[in-house]
Amino acid sequence: MKLHVEIEGEKVLLEVEREGGRVVAEAGGRRYELEVRGVGEGEYLLLHEGRVYECRVEQAQGARERGEMRVAVGAGEYAVTLTDTKHLRGARIAAGEHGGRAQVVAPMPGKVVRVLVERGQAVESGAGVVVVEAMKMQNELKSPKAGTVVELRVEPGATVNAGEVLAVIE
């Protein structure tokens, strides 16, 4: 199996062959012969030259189609994006700022308690746009850039999901 892997901003070509408890892999030209033991759902114990790597793979819901995973190795954690060279899946969707537009995105689920701007209003970079409350804490979401509020998609009292676009600044 051949995959393009993006990890911590580095792109590497990964080739992995598994036969039962043995794995031969080549990552970015580095060759590994490993022992692998499945120790639970998404959990792998990898042994490389006597060293133990306890790995736990989490595929976030919805992120699976994009090939995005989080992998814990011991107490460390990495964001990993896989692209299968066969399916060419995992084409990453550019999010956030593109062109002259920037989005104000809800970083967590919550309830909108206040909207601090109006459509058409000019805002400075860092100016408060929307206040979202979750777990009894109020968080002021700020404009990522200076510009004009061209879209305002929520009003006070609305419930929002993580990742939902609340406003667009141009």
Binding site: I7, V23, A27, Y32, Y44, L46, H48, C55, M69
Partner: peptide
């Protein structure tokens, strides 16, 4: 690399 291999598995 181990993280990438685990993800691939």
């Amino acid at each position: 690399d181990m993280a990438a291999i685990a993800a691939a598995l």
